[in-house]
């Protein structure tokens, strides 16, 4: 007893030491990880920061960009970056005056529909980095640096940031940044970044009320999904559980309701599973009972006979283990299984 207690104590001590060590975490875990080679880092370290650290040297003209754009970008974004067919428009909503101020004035206009990429982007590095890493949509990372400069130059020309005969390069990109329409349209002074790096506020900008009784609110419905929009997300009855405190609202169109009411025909394989036929039978091999294929071969075309045998059970035909009577099998399912057997038990 005391011996085992001592052993336990020793074990506890060992564990304690181990934990104390792991709490501090030694600088290295032997055998884990290795030094990355310069070539590996170069292959993956592709990010470009706002100070253009990481930007590879190169250049591309607006004209070169236009050709590339038509071939690789216009399909999704439109010839002028204006399309909203697949993605939000890239170009539109900025003015020459915005280029002077660095604030996109239309961001103050609630009636202006949508916000394009050019209305929002505040760093040119963002455009270059993203096009380089993720575009074109179906062949990301396939553009060479000069090609990225060129398509970026074309995009900028569409917003009058670069002239039609302009060029973008690692040499002039910092100057072009100073013409980006919304370069000054950003703020980091908020409380939603954990940590002091952005010198934001610590107090949240919005605080709710903790009122519990007779609170000063007028509980009037100001916005309600109109009846005609209730089915815009599909039939809600099919999106709620079929058991519990509630059901889903039936928002299906009339015709769909009728179609849904027609009983679905189940494949025989589902019936075989549902009625546990596979507990004794398999399709191709004999287990407890004969293979369905063998039964099908012996009684080809005799659906009624098979149905009667399944219902009543049978013994002595295929071996010593009798098949119990299947009294619980619904008639329709019984007929379907028998017909399937009589037709050859095709999977």
């Amino acid at each position: 007893m005391s011996k085992s207690r001592n052993a336990l104590l020793a074990l506890t001590l060992v564990c304690g030491v181990a934990f104390a060590q792991s709490d501090k975490f030694p600088a290295a875990f032997p055998g884990i990880g290795r030094t990355a080679t310069p070539a590996e880092v170069k292959a993956w370290d592709i990010d470009v920061r706002p100070d253009f650290k990481g930007l590879p040297p190169g250049r591309g003209t607006v004209a070169q960009g236009e050709t590339l754009w038509e071939a690789k970008c216009a399909g999704c974004h439109g010839s002028f970056g204006e399309s909203n067919e697949v993605f939000m428009p890239l170009i539109g909503g900025t003015t020459k005056d915005d280029i002077k101020t660095g604030h996109v004035a239309r961001l103050l206009d609630p009636s202006f529909p949508g916000r394009t990429t050019m209305m929002k982007v505040s760093h040119l590095s963002t455009l270059w980095d993203y096009i380089h890493r993720a575009m074109p949509w179906t062949a990301p990372k396939s553009l060479k640096p000069d090609e990225v400069y060129a398509v970026t130059a074309y995009l900028l020309s569409l917003a009058d940031v670069l002239p039609p005969d302009g060029e973008l390069s690692d040499k002039n990109i910092a100057q072009v940044q100073e013409r980006l329409p919304n370069r000054n349209g950003k703020t980091w002074a908020h409380s939603m970044w954990p940590g002091p790096e952005f010198k934001g506020t610590t107090q949240p900008d919005v605080q709710g009320s903790a009122c519990m009784k007779n609170c000063a609110v007028e509980p009037k419905v100001s916005s309600l999904l109109p009846d005609y929009a209730m089915d815009a997300s599909g039939n809600l009855a099919q999106q709620q559980r079929l058991v519990g405190p509630q059901r889903g609202l039936d928002t299906s169109p009339k015709t769909a309701k009728q179609a849904a009411a027609a009983p679905a025909v189940k494949p025989v394989s589902d019936l075989l599973k549902q009625h546990a036929c596979f507990a004794c039978h398999q399709i191709d091999t004999k287990v407890v009972g004969p293979a369905f294929k063998d039964v099908a071969a012996k009684y080809a075309g005799q659906a009624d006979h098979l149905a009667a045998k399944i219902r009543s059970g049978s013994s002595g035909v295929w071996g010593p283990i009798p098949m119990p009577a299947q009294t619980a099998l619904p008639d329709a399912d019984l007929k379907a299984i028998a017909a399937w057997l009589a037709a050859g038990a095709k999977p």
């Binding site: 996109v104 961001l107 929002k120 505040s122 963002t126 349209g185 950003k186 908020h190 939603m192």
Partner: peptide
């Protein structure tokens, strides 16, 4: 810089709003 920015009534975008 382009998405996940919060447009404020003064036309400024809050960036790095994370929490």
């Amino acid at each position: 810089d382009v998405h996940y920015v919060d447009l404020m009534p003064d036309g400024q975008h809050r960036q790095y709003t994370s929490i």
